[in-house]
Amino acid sequence: MLQSTKKDVKSQLDNLALLTGQIEERRKYINTIESDVHTLTSEIASLQKQLNKLQRDLKDKKRKYETSVQYMYRNKSVQEKLMFIFSAENLSQTYRRMRYVQEYANFQRLQGMEIERKQKQIAAKKREVEQTKHAKQNLLKQGEVEKAKLEIQEKERQTLLADLQKKQKGIQSEIRKKKRSAEQLNAQIDRLIEIEIEKARKRAEEEARRKAAAEAAAKAAAAKKAERETTGGASRSKSTEKNESTKKVAPVEKFSLNNEDRQLSGSFERNRGILPVPITGPYVIVSHYGQYAVDGLRNVKLDNKGIDIKGKPGAQARAVFNGEVSAIFQYNGLNNILVRHGNYISVYCNLSSVSVSKGSKVNTRTVLGTIHTDSSGNTVLHFQLRKETAKLNPELWLGR
């Protein structure tokens, strides 16, 4: 009976986390819809202004065209046009009157074409306004549907919370169990990251040592060449040897990163906020980073060093950036992977199988392994992000 109650509490807490995550995502989606509706409303107002201006322009051009047509009607006969041309006082005036008659005819033709063009512009703008209004109506309907779904989910959550409130003992027991498990997992991750940091320090020291040796050799060669070209080489040679001897025993400057690591770290930092989500397929974040109280449950606080992402059964973990697999270890019969990106490390936990090996070079979105699906059908990836030993909030780095 006790085992059944514990299992029931665990299942209910899992369902609560899933519902809470779905509600958060749906609220974000509704906010996005409302923002899009606001944008479309502004766009419709702008399009309507443009349409009104086009209609005013068309009205003005029609008025001018009507005036010119009336004038031409009054002077429509060929005889009147010829009389106007030949009644000129001289040849120059005759030529100018001929040009005037031609240009006026062209002006009328162009006015007609401009009116036709404006009418087409107005028709196109009206279609654009209608399409935008239609898009707005669709978004409003979609928003209402999402709000209805949200209301149902919130009712489900409240019912679940009311039931869980009666099982405080079981909840606290489950929370303590999860906390112990998380602490043991994090202790292993911390230990492996310390090893990685030490390796990086040694690589940097070795690179600095090689660089210092190369510089010393180059200076020694330059000094010997200078001695051969000048007198008093012997005394200078002793002085040079003494200086070189002093340089050899000087302590090597320590770097936390070598050049390759430094470049990779810089590249990783520039991708903050746009890294891909480390899971394939549809997903929902069911547990956030840091310490926080569970809304609706008394005395229930969670402390997550990363985030928990629930996907569909069969979902795979994927690398968030180029790097190298620095460690693969098992905990509770499941696989966990550390990928180093310079002095940044991403951690992927709860994998049933792995597709890479230690030392493998990976690219952004390289599949690392398949995420474990438990007996309740939960497929949850635990994901962490570190900068050396400092724990980071992964949600600030992922592009969603």
Rank of each mutant, 00 (worst) to 15 (best):
L2C: 08
Q3E: 12
T5Q: 12
K6E: 15
K6V: 06
K6R: 13
K6G: 10
V9R: 04
Q12E: 10
N15R: 04
L19W: 04
L19M: 06
Q22M: 12
Q22P: 05
E24T: 11
Y29N: 13
I30A: 01
N31C: 06
E34M: 10
S35H: 12
V37D: 07
T39P: 10
T41A: 11
I44L: 05
L51N: 07
L54G: 10
L54V: 02
L54H: 03
Q55T: 02
R56M: 11
D57P: 06
Y65A: 13
V69M: 14
V69S: 12
M72D: 08
M72Y: 04
M72N: 09
R74T: 13
Q79Y: 15
E89T: 07
S92M: 10
Q93K: 08
Q93D: 12
R96F: 15
M98V: 06
R99S: 14
V101G: 02
Y104M: 14
F107V: 11
F107W: 13
Q119C: 05
K120D: 10
K120W: 05
R127D: 14
E130R: 05
T132K: 08
T132G: 02
L140R: 07
K141C: 11
K141F: 10
Q142A: 15
E144S: 09
K147I: 04
K149Q: 13
I152R: 13
E156D: 12
R157D: 08
G170M: 02
S173L: 14
I175E: 00
R176L: 11
R176Y: 06
K179N: 13
R191W: 05
R191C: 04
L192K: 03
I193W: 03
E196A: 08
E196G: 07
I197W: 00
E198F: 02
A200S: 09
R201I: 03
A208I: 04
R210Y: 14
A212V: 14
A222M: 07
K225H: 15
T231H: 11
G232A: 00
S237V: 07
N243S: 15
N243E: 11
E244Y: 09
K247L: 14
K248Q: 14
K248N: 10
K254F: 07
K254R: 12
E260T: 13
D261C: 07
R262E: 15
S267T: 07
T280F: 00
T280K: 03
T280L: 05
T280H: 00
Y283S: 03
I285W: 02
H288V: 11
Y289K: 03
Q291Y: 07
A293C: 08
L297C: 06
R298C: 01
V300T: 01
K301V: 12
N304D: 06
K310V: 06
G311V: 00
P313W: 04
P313E: 02
G314E: 04
A315L: 02
Q316M: 12
Q316R: 13
R318A: 09
R318I: 06
A319M: 06
I328V: 05
F329C: 04
G333M: 02
I337M: 05
L338A: 02
V339F: 01
G342I: 00
Y348S: 09
S353W: 06
S357Y: 09
G359D: 02
S360G: 06
T364S: 05
T364L: 09
T366K: 00
T366I: 00
T366D: 02
V367K: 04
T370D: 05
S375D: 15
E388C: 01
T389D: 14
T389S: 12
A390Y: 09
L392M: 07
L392V: 00
L392H: 01
E395V: 07
L396Y: 09
W397R: 03
W397P: 01
